[in-house]
Design a protein around this nucleic acid. Sequence first.
RNA 1: GCCCAGGUGGCGGAAUUGGUAGACGCGCAGGUUUCAGGUACCUGUGGCCGCAAGGCUGUGGAAGUUCGAGUCUUCUCCUGGGCACCA
Length: 865
Amino acid sequence: MTADYDFASAEPHWQRIWDERGCFAVADDDPGDTRTKYYVLEMFPYPSGKIHMGHVRNYTLGDVVARLRRAQGHAVLHPMGWDAFGLPAENAARERGVHPADWTWGNIAHMRAELKRMGLSIDWSREFATCDPAYYGQQQRLFLDFLRAGFAERRDAWVNWDPVDGTVLANEQVIDGRGWRSGAPVEKKKLSQWFLRITDEAPALLAALDGLDRWPARVRQMQANWIGRSEGAEIEFPLDQPEGAITAVEVYSTRPDTLFGMSFLAISPEHPLAAAVAARDPATAAFIAECRRLGTSEAAIEAAEKRGHDTGLRVRHPFLPDASFPVWIANFVLMEYGTGAVFGCPAHDQRDLDFVRRYGLPVVPVVLPPGADAARFAIDDVAYTGPGTIFHSDFLDGLDVDAAKRAAIAALEARGSGRGVVNWRLRDWGVSRQRYWGCPIPVIHCAACGIVPVPVAELPVVLPHDVDFSRPGNPLDLHPSWPNVACPSCGGPARRETDTFDTFVDSAWYFARFASPHAAEPVRRAAADRWLPVDQYIGGIEHAILHLLYSRFFTRAMRATGHVGLDEPFAGLFTQGMVTHASYRAADGGWLYPEEVDLRADGGAVERAGGGAVTVGRVEAMSKSKRNTVDPGAIIARYGADTARWFILSDNPPERDMEWTETGVAGAWRFVRRLHRLVEAIAVLPAAPKPDRFGAAATALRRTTHRSIAAVSAALDSFAFNVAVARIHEFASALADAEMADAAEPGLAWARREAGATVALLIGPMMPHLAETLHAALNPSAGTLIAELPWPEADPELLEQQSVTIAVQIMGRLRGTVAMPPDAPPEAVIAAAASEDNVARLLAGKRIVKRIHVPNRIVNFVVTG
RNA sequence: GCCCAGGUGGCGGAAUUGGUAGACGCGCAGGUUUCAGGUACCUGUGGCCGCAAGGCUGUGGAAGUUCGAGUCUUCUCCUGGGCACCA
């Protein structure tokens, strides 16, 4: 009888050994290392205070990949760092009087210790935090390069202003008209801001998605939708009477084929023409004010409500010299998209139709659906947007929709009143934030010289430590001395930029910094060339658009400025599911933590303290507000890191949401002990040279061993970690069977030692500590580590089957099975199948019209009568 | 509204990509061990009929292709996610 596996002493022991031996360290650039590189990266954490189960899942998945690739002979880069700037640190400062830096560094220290207890194969010598001047100073340098190369610019722009956080938000950070973090309705404000010109890269970013064949299709789809390419025409509509300096309205349309169906022109309330009319017309001004008051969020709620205001202006039609159309201001026209103006063709656009039904404007159908009667076709309440033949449209008559688009664009271009254009939904990336805890934007504003970049020699621009959070607003702006500097250009008094970068800038290049984390430049080129791209990136689907798109853009800008030599940062992407848990409510409606609840066998639950009634709620993503969280630290203390890792991997496929259950972890812990006991029993067997002869049980075990190698390798290679776990369970059952077999059988002891050594190697990526413990037990004096041993190879001879089970069907229904040698001649297989007892009984009196034989799989008799 | 995923036992999920559906785990039932057990081990476990042999049925639903469909085709229902006055 052996003692239970003592993970509490084994896990720290192996972690120390790995650390002492430097098992996971790699060089930035070592020409002597001829191994193929493999860069595994999990999205780095925000140091919020404690790690949560989502982190545990993320880093477990990455560690399996890293350890597997290392064993398979790759030089593996597997780093860790901290996405350490951000608003929660400032909130902590305002709410609790802790300095953001102290709060952040304290959290990092705590979370680093927690992560280390997981036994991850990380090269900790590469660790950095984005709030360290050593990192953000290099980011400032990158920005100056981008500025020089034209990737960054400052301009006035309508911005999304979050009134609660008191800062600007990128379009990507506005969700349903509300700030992504505060949830407050976003306001429109015009401010001078720094922008990164991501729209210049829109065509390249879209085109390159096709090459990302190791990305999930849906992430590529989401990015493509976000970039939002559309083809159409820009059309100029001259005003009948000029409005001040404005003589025409420019419109973007994807449907120039429907120009003859126009009944009005609509402009956005923010359009310059609207402002010009409002300057002289109070009714127009009132309508614009009302639109602004309703704001984005109200507009979202009342999405169906189309409102308009007739300006009294009229425009001329490019193809109808005698006709003119009214110009309306309409609340559904967005200034941000296209030109901020549309021509309304109500017959073939639902919004336009809703609008004219409200305001009584005409509806002229110009696309005739296939098979419809031109004399009787009419539009009712539903616009027709499908294919068809153009009619009522002069020179476009008879063309189909696509041909008419081309013809209309050609005619517009010929007349000089329009042209074909490609439009993008993607906006430039506003990166200015009115915050303290972020990377200072390294420029200086000089009254005489304008915007002056901080000289590289003066970088980093370091955040001042002595800031005052007692007043609202940006503490940098309020700082008594920090903003005041001499202009680097003229030496006169000047003022620092007090905005800091959006934290998405910090995470848009950190993967490149990991290649040479201590370099005196942003990225050392040789190191970047050695390690980039990231071969396998792993993280949550919530970053499918923002972070991944920004990183792709940054990589292109870094290439253009000579920092890296590639376009795409992430060759492979894996998006993991969330960790969920049932939620519990006490009788008074308050949420309860899982450890406050006792589950009963009938599925009900009671409060552990007092036995009060508990309602078991939905299984949903772990969140503090629902209290359905499980603390990884407590789980690791109770069961060990390997058990937690094993459960996370075994429950379900990693891309899906997994449910954390107490019974599941307990089951994983049971298996850990079972495997430990099985291998301990093997470790006491005498070691002996490989025998010449193996008995039946020994041979069966050896076949299982080598089949397990093949099956587990295939499963791990394809991210089917739950299947790998299942195969190891089967392997363990075979180990238990061998324990019961006749010990005197030739070769059994050797086969069992082989099996034990193999199982230790196979669990290595998933349960690294247990693997080392088993390996050490089997090889007490070897001094080798699983972490340094190569991945096992399956012996092809032992993978060959001596016998295959052939399913026998009659009319496609299973009626029996027969065992045959592999690749037996078809006639022999069919004869054996036909004489199987049950099959023979059912075939009696029937005429066989066809015999189907699929080698090593199936025989099917097609019969009549 | 548009675009993605996904519907398989009581539960999580397997299924060599058209060839024995339900691997493996959880749960449950029966048993063995134990002073005891939130222990360990063994056996069983899709549903219906049957003592059994075996039969029928079964992968959200309907139709189709095929000797054979969880897998392919068409339609349809449901669930989850993303986007959305995008002209």
